[in-house]
């Protein structure tokens, strides 16, 4: 692999729902080990963009290329559906805002983490359980809960379990949609700490969609600011947040400061 070639390359991506343009003409590159934050208020097209990037929504226009381990940069929508589904449960991870969408709520924590391993052929119960335990520890969960179903967990714990479930196959790229949304502030802080640690330790590449600039500052190397489906500003996180150029970004930043 060429050290200079990006992990993900997006070119002129647009998506419309009927006549409504949800996101328009987005282009960027993401390199290995980089964390990109996509910020903007709700309705700005962030989640649509994330769905298009993560092979879950065919964009109306544009190309999304990913550096597949065996064939280099490839248009992900040229892959067959099973290839895309395989990618999604091996080399990629998707952490949903609502854990209900990302977890099997009536399957035990261990089963939730082990599912990806079994999907790629793991057939040793002891080893699967061992790996699940390792990951539950990594996300700071009580091992005594390994056989409990997440429907009985707190929101923060569900989110940690979702992260473990995604990272267990050591994905290279993780998509996160408001990973701390809907959590109490103190729970958010712990989760952010955990995420920051994991991203560094595992040298993860990630795209994080959030409306929360504090989350963006803590996790992202670079930021992309979206408004009405368009990217209005990009740059290094500190640069964008400390010296915003676009009036919308300025408004976003100032509104946070006022809080």
């Amino acid at each position: 692999m060429n050290a200079m070639s990006p992990l993900l390359r997006v070119h002129n991506l647009s998506h419309a729902f009927g006549s409504l343009l949800a996101c328009s003409d987005v282009s960027f590159e993401l390199h290995s080990g980089e964390v990109l934050g996509v910020v903007g208020e709700s309705g700005s097209g962030k989640t649509t963009l994330l769905n298009c990037l993560s092979a879950r929504l065919v964009p109306t226009n544009g190309i999304v290329e990913y550096d597949l381990r065996d064939r280099g940069l490839t248009d992900i929508y040229s892959l067959s559906e099973p290839e895309r589904r395989f990618l999604l449960r091996t080399d990629w991870g998707v952490v949903m805002q609502n854990p209900r969408d990302g977890l099997r709520m009536s399957i035990s924590a261990g089963g939730n983490v082990g599912e990806r391993l079994m999907a790629v052929g793991a057939r040793h119960y002891g080893e699967i359980r061992g790996t699940a335990e390792e990951w539950l520890e990594k996300v700071e969960m009580d091992l005594g809960r390994i056989d409990d179903a997440p429907k009985h967990f707190s929101g923060g714990m569900q989110q940690r379990l979702q992260i473990a479930r995604n990272l267990v196959t050591k994905p290279r790229l993780v998509f996160m949609d408001e990973p701390t949304g809907g959590l109490d502030v103190s729970v958010q802080a712990r989760l952010l700490d955990l995420l920051r640690g994991l991203v560094r330790e595992l040298k993860l590449s990630a795209i994080i969609v959030t409306h929360d600039l504090a989350v963006a500052r803590l996790l992202a190397d670079r930021l992309m600011v979206m408004k009405d489906g368009k990217v209005v500003e990009t740059g290094l996180t500190d640069q964008v947040l400390d010296d915003p150029h676009h009036p919308y970004t300025q408004l976003l930043v100032s509104s946070v400061l006022q809080v």
Binding site: R85, F86, S108, G114, E115, R116, M118, A119, V120
Partner: peptide, 22 residues
């Protein structure tokens, strides 16, 4: 039918895992 077509049988194995865990 998709799961059969793509040979995605991980979930079936998960249900056996759950049995042993429980």
């Amino acid at each position: 039918r998709k799961m059969h077509a793509y040979k995605e049988y991980g979930l079936m194995q998960v249900s056996l895992y759950e049995d042993i865990a429980r």
